[in-house]
Every structure is written in C-alpha cells, then in structure tokens.
Design a protein around this nucleic acid. Structure first.
Lengths: 200, 200
DNA sequence: GCAGTAGGTTACTCGAAGTAAGTTACGAGC
DNA sequence: GCTCGTAACTTACTTCGAGTAACCTACTGC
C-alpha cells in the first residue's frame, strides 16, 4: 500500500483506539496489529507514539478549519458570524463524538508538543472570534478582545463536552445556549468598550 | 516520619515534579528520590502512579472548595454570589500557578479515574452556579440551568489558563472580564427563561 | 525483655516504547 | 527477461519504568 494511503489508515485506526481506551492505555503493538502492519511501520511514518497522536489532532484541526471557514463565509453581522462559527464547531464535534474527547483531553496530558497542536485548534477559534470583534469594533482594547475570545472559546469547548453527555442536545440547541449567555455581553461591549481605567 | 505527614510531603513533591515535567515524563523513582524514600513507599500510600496524581488533584480540590465556600458565604444577590465565587477561583489559581496547569491538563489525559477527580472540581463549580440560578429563579428549566453553568465554568477555566500567560492580568480583572461577558446573558435569562418550545 | 506493628528497603518481574538489521515486492532502465 | 534501486515491510532485539514480593528494623505498649 502506498505511503499516503497507509498513513491515513493509521491515523484513522489510531484515532479510534485512542478514543476507545485512552492514549496511555493504548500500545503501539495494538495499533499496528489492528492496522495489519508491524510496529516499526508506525515509527517509520510518525516517529513516536506522541507523533502519531499529534498526527491525529492535526488532521482533525485541518478539517475543522476548513468546515468553519466555509460556514462563516457569507456572514453579514457579527452576531451571524459568531452563530455560524459556533454551529460549525458543534456540528464538527457531533460528527466526531468518539475522537473528540480524546483529542482534546488526552492530548493535553500526554505531550507538550501535542499540547501545542491542541492550542493551535484553540488559536484558530480565538482568531475567528478576535476577527469578529476587531472588524466590527476596530478601537476595542486588544487585551479585552483577547479575553472575550478566550471566554467564548472556553464556554464553547465546555458545552461541547457537555453536549456529548446529553444525547437530547444537538448542535443547534447548544449554539442557542451559548449565544443566549454570551451574546448580550459581547454585543454590549462592541458598542461600548471597557474603559482603559479598569485595566490597572 | 508518621504516615499522614509523609503522605502530605509526597503530595507536595509529586505536585511540583508533575507540574514541572508533566505526568508522563515523570518516573516514580524520581519522585521517591526527591522525597528521600524508596519507591514502594509511594505504592504503599497511593497504590499507583495514577493514585498519586489523583491524590494531588483531590487535595487541590478540597482546598478550592473550602476557599470558595468561605468567599461566597455573605453574598446577597446572584450577581454578587457569582462574582465572589469567580474571584475566589481566580485567586486560587493565581496562588497555585505551577501546579494548576498540570493538574487540569495532565490529569485529563492520564487516567479515567483522574478524569473523575477533575470532573469533581468542575462539578463543584457547576453546582455553585446551578445554585445561583435555581435559588433565584426556581422555575428555570433544569437542562438550561445546567448548560448555563457549564458555559460559565468553561469560560472561567479557559480564562484562568489565559491569565497565566498574561502576567498583567490578575484575579480581579479576570473576574471583571468574565462578568462583563457572562452576566448580561445570565441576568437576562434569570428574568425570562428560554421557552420550552426551543427545547426540541 | 518481648510481641506486634508502622515504616522502610533491596531486588526482582513484566510490559511497552523504541531500534537495528535484514527481507520482499516491484517498477525503471538496459 | 534480467538486474538495480528503493519503497514497504518484518523479526528480534534493548531499555526503561511501573508495579511487587520478600525481607528488615526500630519503637511502643505490656
């Protein structure tokens, strides 16, 4: 089997097993066996167990970026922008229920470099939020814009985890909830930024 | 050295080394050496590497609960309740900069049971938020109350991580930011809950 | 002064990450 | 239609760290 195809297959299998059992509880031999190949092949293509994990995260990250970019393309107002972005995110999570928890949770513990990949995902999201704030309110305090973006990302991420435990809650309702809590405050600040005096 | 004292010492050392190097990169031999004791003693008192990690998290959790409970004791309004709770949380994080990141991040990856301990911390927080919502608006939809609590916890947690990277941002300002984004939306819903129609 | 137990150690096993060295399949060029 | 080179792959290790078995020691109550 050609390299690219084999790598993709390895990522798929690894993502599944990692998600099932957790990163620590999974051995490279087990992944190799389920792929139908020997362990050194995994090392040939991904360098280490950590490298394999990073590969999984990276692929998910790329996919998420593409879907989000497509979703927000036609947004006209900051509210619509944010809503479409959140919805794309929750839909992505919904489709990847299995691997999601692992990739976020497990990755963080495992390795510093995996942590960077996960931070990369968050960076994409905070950048998106930052873009909303900055494009519609150019004179907003940068630190405050950053804080707001982090808050929105944190809220969204947490609700995504919660959504998994609540089968009755789908992407649309999750988006509604986040918007209901977040939007009044954000909208408020878009019109009237915090005064610099508070930034002691 | 008596057992209780030795255990406390082990937790302190473990927390420090885990935070420095990460859970995976730390060996039990190393912890044992730095404690000045042999490895089987760690197993005697904590059962496993995972057990040791859980011990660290559990101790932090207990301390956080006590501090938070003390802080919110005298709150009169839901807003003050929430603000004092958030402030107590951010102050706790600020005092535990080193171990904080590890305990949250690493624990998640490492072990299912450590995950439970971390979830316990979050549960404390969501319970607190839930209490605010329920006590001041008894007829709020339980699912919605849960979602709101998760959103607040997620936002807070993420901002705590961000605060660590921004030395100029202290607990007070972090609290301000979270309240600025979160409060208008929560206040809004306290007065006028989401209609059941949306809970399709 | 002896028994029992709390607190401790040395010296192992075992499983999993990572590696060295070698093997097979297969297409390109003659 | 044979052979050279390389891509894809394997077997058989080494190494390191989690966890354990078996044994030791010193103190405290009687």
């Amino acid at each position: 089997m050609p390299k690219a195809q084999r790598m993709a297959q390895m990522l798929t299998v690894a993502e599944e097993i990692f998600a099932e059992q957790g990163y620590l509880a999974t051995s490279m031999d087990e992944i190799a066996e389920r792929v139908g190949v020997s362990k050194p092949m995994l090392y040939e293509y991904f360098g280490s167990k950590e490298g394999l994990l990073i590969g999984c995260i990276h692929r998910a990250r790329t996919e998420l970026r593409e879907k989000t970019a497509a979703a927000i393309a036609g947004a006209a107002s900051p509210e619509e922008f944010l809503r479409l972005g959140l919805l794309a995110f929750f839909e992505f999570i919904d489709e990847h229920r299995r691997s999601w928890a692992l990739l976020r949770q497990e990755a963080a513990v495992a390795v510093p470099s995996a942590q960077e990949e996960v931070e990369g995902i968050r960076q994409q999201q905070t950048d998106m939020i930052g873009a909303v704030l900055a494009s519609f309110t150019p004179d907003i305090d940068p630190l405050e814009a950053e804080a707001f973006a982090e808050i929105v990302v944190g809220a969204t991420e947490r609700l995504a985890v919660w959504m998994e435990r609540r089968p009755s809650v789908g992407p649309a309702l999750a988006t509604d909830y986040v918007m209901a809590v977040i939007w009044p405050g954000v909208d408020n600040r878009l019109r009237k930024p915090l005064s610099p005096a508070r930034l002691a």
